[in-house]
Design a protein around this nucleic acid. Structure first.
Lengths: 256, 256
DNA sequence: CGCCGACTTGACACCAATCAAGATAAGTGG
DNA sequence: CCACTTATCTTGATTGGTGTCAAGTCGGCG
């Protein structure tokens, strides 16, 4: 609140990627950050009520929806998927969270989503009552939480835009570009992208199926935009072409 | 913050409809409310920096994306649509806002969405700097803003679920049910629903086209769930049937 | 080497976008 | 009040993307 004209400095990467960039230019040597907004003093205060938790493997459950919400979490290392089950039983991944992201905000005291690890993860756990007390004492800290929330809100809106109006191929291109912009996944020299998620998670995130996701990969490859080294290692052959895809025709026939 | 176990009392209707319910049980006689969270004292404080603005007709622009964000708004009366234009030129309506809703939060000092009136509207306009100052002084007020934001965030997530995984007919059913739960639109005795939005806006909100929306209406009518009196007046014949639709098969073939 | 999971590709059916035309309602001028 | 115009909504025919089912391929691990 001492930098932006009115309110909102960009909480993380400038171009608002859906997979938010992992920031390496941390303020101090402290590991705790929330979207790179915190001052050193705020980090210390937060650390005093936080407990570090480790999840050594992927596929571990951090919390499930409908359960009583006692904690809120901030990622220090690793990737977490936030998902929800539709009334008809389908799973939908709402977001992949990366270091610096905050999740687990309760609604009427319970979690509304489910959080699971996608890779080995280290995170900070905050008891709600203690965090609320701290926020009440520190309006600036609360304001930064608000900024972070507003940012995540816009990410969700962006995802809404994508889900409703583009073909699976276009959505895949946007997804790849988001990851490319995130340091830690993309090797600039080899032009290789390391996808940390499998096709199943990818499909549930893009709102499609594994088969269609695979076909979208195949088509991008046939068009010369990418090359599949392995299923999780993608070489980018034509970055501009990928970027142009999202400006392409609106037509998403046969699609919802 | 004196009612819920930890944090989050439901900001408006209990079942979190996408079109949030207009609350008639206001705290006092003051017209200003934000999701029915504010105490009388907070209302007074907010009113002291707010200016009432009238938009007498529908289709009027309140602000457009990319423009410098000077104000934030709270609806007192009427309906506002929040939209964004995709890179390919398609418009998408992200939400319909009703009385008690807050919108216009800037990102890095500019608006990211466009807001236009759907009907004649009366709203309160807050200059950002003054509002920020007030929030810094009143942590409880800021907390309520945060609650409101978290609620809207979950609405967006809910919309994401819907957009990605259901057929146009199912999405229309959910949309109708949301409006039915909102007092002011649904006549309990006649079982008639007054839709304030035209097919164009409806289609852009549901992520489909006018034609498909019309066909979805036609099919619901043929199935005996609703009856079209006029294009904007719908009689509900089988409420339970509508509700069952959202639990229906996950299949959204030919759909994204 | 063989099993097993994840990924990929093919065939088919279906929903929805598009193009086009018709029907209904609303607004306008005589 | 009625003809005309216009906007909005609706329906039909066609086309294409995608879900589903099924089979095949690739890679890891014991």
């Amino acid at each position: 609140m001492d930098r932006a004209p009115y309110w909102d400095p960009p909480p993380s990467g400038g171009s608002a990627p859906t997979i938010r960039a992992r920031r390496l230019d941390r303020v101090g040597d402290h590991p705790l950050q929330i979207g790179n907004l915190l001052s050193r003093k705020e980090q210390d205060e937060l650390l005093s009520i936080a407990k570090p938790i480790k999840y050594p493997r992927s596929g571990m459950t951090i919390f499930t929806s409908e359960k009583e919400a006692e904690y809120v979490y901030v990622i220090d290392e690793g990737i977490v998927r936030i998902s929800r089950i539709a009334p008809n039983g389908q799973r939908r991944i709402l977001a992949f969270m990366v270091p610096g992201d905050l999740f687990g905000m309760p609604d009427c005291g319970i979690y509304v989503n489910t959080a699971e690890t996608v890779s080995a993860t280290r995170l900070y756990r905050f008891p709600w009552p203690a965090l609320r007390q701290l926020l009440a004492k520190r309006p600036q800290l609360q304001e930064k939480l608000l900024i972070k929330l507003a940012h995540d809100f816009r990410q969700a809106q962006r995802q809404m835009m994508m889900l409703g109006q583009q073909s699976a191929r276009q959505r895949l291109a946007v997804f790849l570009l988001d990851f490319i912009r995130s340091p830690g996944f993309f090797n600039q020299e080899k032009l290789q992208l390391a996808l940390p998620v499998n096709r199943f998670d990818l499909a549930d995130y893009l709102g499609t199926t594994r088969e269609t996701a695979a076909r979208a990969f195949a088509r991008l490859e046939k068009e010369g935009l990418i090359r599949r080294i392995t299923a999780h290692t993608i070489q980018i052959l034509n970055m501009g072409g990928l970027e142009q895809l999202q400006y392409g025709p609106s037509r998403r026939t046969g699609s919802a």
